[in-house]
Simulated scan of single mutants.
Amino acid sequence: MLYKEIHIGQFIKERVAEQEITMERICNFLKKDEEFIEKVYESKSIDTDLLLRWSKLLEYDFFRLYSSHLILYAPPSAVKKDAKKSDKIPYFRKNIYTQEIKNFILKRIQSGEMNQTEIIREYSIPKSTLHRWLQKNTDNNV
């Protein structure tokens, strides 16, 4: 799965089909009508509060799609060493590498599409982290 283009409505619709959730249950949970639900399926983006409610209903963290996109496609920031951290919003010390991201990266190396140096430079993944993934992948395949 590639995270470059996210059409959240399509992901939601696919998850609804996987979970076999009825339209009646969706409408009751979200307190919306069928027309609204169909519009969500066609939407490339939706309100975060609504996305949170969909995540709860479908027991799937749709926000991870966006986190994965940031990890893979956002350029690394030029972080200042003395930059002050905000006390008003949460600060996340590390990126979260999901298994899907690890598989995506490992597949690019195994297919010869990119080498380790290119992966490290392109996605700002620490060399030790990448080597750990490769080692675990080798151990699992033996």
Rank of each mutant, 00 (worst) to 15 (best):
M1A: 02
L2F: 12
E5P: 02
I6E: 03
Q10P: 00
F11T: 09
E14L: 13
A17Y: 05
Q19L: 09
Q19E: 13
T22H: 09
M23F: 05
R25H: 14
F29L: 06
F29A: 11
E34K: 07
E35Q: 09
F36E: 11
E38H: 11
K39I: 08
V40L: 07
S45L: 09
I46S: 01
T48S: 13
L51A: 04
W54A: 05
L58R: 07
L58C: 05
D61R: 11
D61V: 02
F62S: 02
F62L: 01
F63S: 03
Y66L: 09
S68D: 11
S68V: 00
H69K: 01
H69M: 05
L70D: 15
I71P: 02
Y73H: 15
A74C: 10
K80I: 04
D82A: 11
A83V: 13
K84C: 03
K84W: 05
K88L: 14
I89R: 07
R93V: 14
K94C: 07
N95K: 15
I96N: 05
I96T: 08
T98R: 04
Q99F: 10
Q99D: 14
E100I: 05
N103D: 09
K107S: 15
K107Y: 11
Q110G: 00
Q110N: 01
S111V: 04
E113P: 05
N115M: 10
E118G: 08
I120M: 04
R121P: 00
R121W: 06
E122T: 14
S124M: 01
I125Y: 11
P126S: 07
P126G: 00
K127F: 01
S128V: 14
L130M: 00
H131S: 14
W133T: 00
N140G: 02
N141V: 10
V142M: 14
